[in-house]
Write a protein that binds this DNA or RNA. Structure first.
Length: 426
RNA sequence: GGAAGGGUGGCUGAGUGGUCGAAAGCGCGAGUCUCGAAAACUCGUGUUCCGCUUGCGGGACCGUGGGUUCGAAUCCCACCCCUUCCGCCA
């Protein structure tokens, strides 16, 4: 959520930068409502001020044993007037607030302008595409041949877009999760957290999935709860409605969770294999930082995610998303894309974003700090998060990059200890 | 699912109709003391909105939403959440 006052006082700037993200955005209506609300509010507050005064007076006079029935009568009509104006202001407030919740975050000045993913900018890459002197199989074939992926039974029990890992496939998935969490905790200073995979509406609103993306989520209607689309939601909202201390920042948390996505509207895309599925595992990093440090923190965060791919020995590239491809809540975002040789394409396995105070404002996450002249103030923290990294697709990359001529899979050396010393599958 | 108790500032916790935005303590900040620190002492210290603007004036906020009243943290109703006990259960 952007600050209403900021939009009001920087109207042109707000409009210009928001349109880099949503070209059709219109704020005229919004500002008109805000004007109207402030007019009514002024009247209301004057009325209330008057009433407070006379109620106090009545109290005093009564205490002295004087007759106050005239005064009480007069205040009564004032009280009615206040109620009328109150309902007007409350109604306007609600409309404005709900509109505000639907306004996206504005892109940072270093974000390139663009309208779609073809205008994202590659900022660097690491490693090289591996060469094969035989024809490698796509992950779904090699996975089924080895008995570690079972698509048929997955769709039998749940439907298309779900995966079953078996045997060493399941173990590989688990090994990756452990390896990643250990790396982030031991080398990057994160604290591991394990949170619920189901959250309430308030949490979903706090990180910005609601109200816009309700159709993309699995909902448990009876209880008005949602299956999380990413651990970002429970982990960021851990500090919802809290006041943090400056000395405790930055806070870095890492969590494993499954991620549930309906993928409404993307039917027909990536139907084969497990590129696009309704449930996948992910290790997610979340950071709470001081505002002036958040862009340095973003670079660090990307580095943490990259290190996972480097340690696995997977070729990848880093893309800076253009304004039009940025998600609703993000101010700046880098994607990590890993090379999948059998399909000759890159797969997005991580998204690292700075949300600035957009989520903190929605979720009400503040911290106390000292100003330069020694006064205490409160300020919203900046929140960031990044996949570190998404599974399923990482397994795809391993199955395709480390395939041998005889259809086996070499296990990346960092995972060998997590696989009980095993060096290959098959 | 049943019963009881409870939700007050950064935290603990007092407050049951009017000078209550709210005692006290802790924490935090400034200062005194000290070579320095600790302790002790003094003073200060909620959030947020609106308006003129280095300051000031006003409004709102005691779980949420309604109601009663001239006036509600305080009384009434509904809902949400938490704790404890009982039942069921991985």
């Amino acid at each position: 959520m952007l600050e209403l006052k900021w939009i009001r006082e920087n109207f042109q700037e707000a409009l210009t930068s928001l349109r880099k993200k949503s070209p059709s955005l219109d704020l005229d209506d919004f500002m008109r409502l805000d004007d109207e609300r402030r007019e009514d509010l002024k009247v209301l507050e004057n009325l209330r001020s008057e009433m407070n005064k006379s109620a106090k007076e009545i109290g005093l006079l009564k205490g002295q044993g004087k007759d106050v029935s005239d005064k009480m009568e007069a205040t009564k009509s004032l009280s009615q007037k206040i109620k009328d104006f109150e309902s007007k202001v409350v109604e306007l407030d609600q409309i404005i607030h709900s509109k505000l919740l639907n306004i996206p975050n504005k892109p940072h000045s270093t974000v390139p302008f663009g309208t779609g993913d073809e205008q994202n900018v590659e900022v660097r890459s690491w490693g090289n595409k591996p060469e094969f002197d035989f024809k490698i199989l796509p992950h779904w074939e090699v996975g089924e041949n080895l008995g570690i992926l079972d698509f048929k039974r997955a769709s039998k029990i749940s439907g298309t877009g779900f995966i079953v890992f078996r045997g060493l496939g399941a173990k590989l998935e688990r090994a990756l999760i452990q390896f990643m969490i250990d790396l982030h905790c031991q080398s990057h200073g994160y604290e591991e957290v394990s949170t619920p995979f189901v959250v309430n509406r308030k949490s979903m609103t706090g990180t910005g999935q609601l109200p816009k993306l309700e159709k993309d989520m699995y909902c448990l209607e009876e209880d008005d709860l949602f299956l999380i689309p990413t651990a970002e939601v429970p982990v960021t909202n851990l500090f919802m409605d809290e006041m943090l201390e400056e000395k405790d920042l930055p806070i870095g948390l890492v969590a494993y969770s499954p991620c549930f996505r309906r993928e409404a509207g993307s039917y027909g895309k990536d139907t084969r294999g497990m590129i696009r599925v309704h449930q996948f595992d992910k290790v997610e990093m979340v950071r709470f930082v001081q505002p002036e440090k958040s862009y340095d923190e973003l670079e660090k965060l990307v580095g943490h995610a990259e290190e996972v791919l480097q340690k696995l020995g997977l070729h990848y590239r880093v893309k800076l998303l253009c304004s039009g491809d940025l998600s609703f809540s993000a101010a700046k975002c880098y994607d990590l894309e890993v090379w999948a040789p059998a399909q000759e394409r890159y797969l997005e396995v991580s998204s690292c974003s700075n949300f600035e105070d957009f989520q903190a404002r929605r979720a009400n996450i503040k911290y106390r700090r000292m100003t330069n002249d020694g006064r205490r103030t409160t300020e919203y923290v900046h929140t960031l998060n990044g996949s570190g990294i998404a599974l399923a697709r990482t397994v795809v990359a391993i199955l395709e990059n480390f395939q041998t001529r005889d259809g086996k899979i070499k296990i990346p050396s960092v995972l060998v200890p997590y696989m009980g010393g095993m060096t290959q599958i098959g």
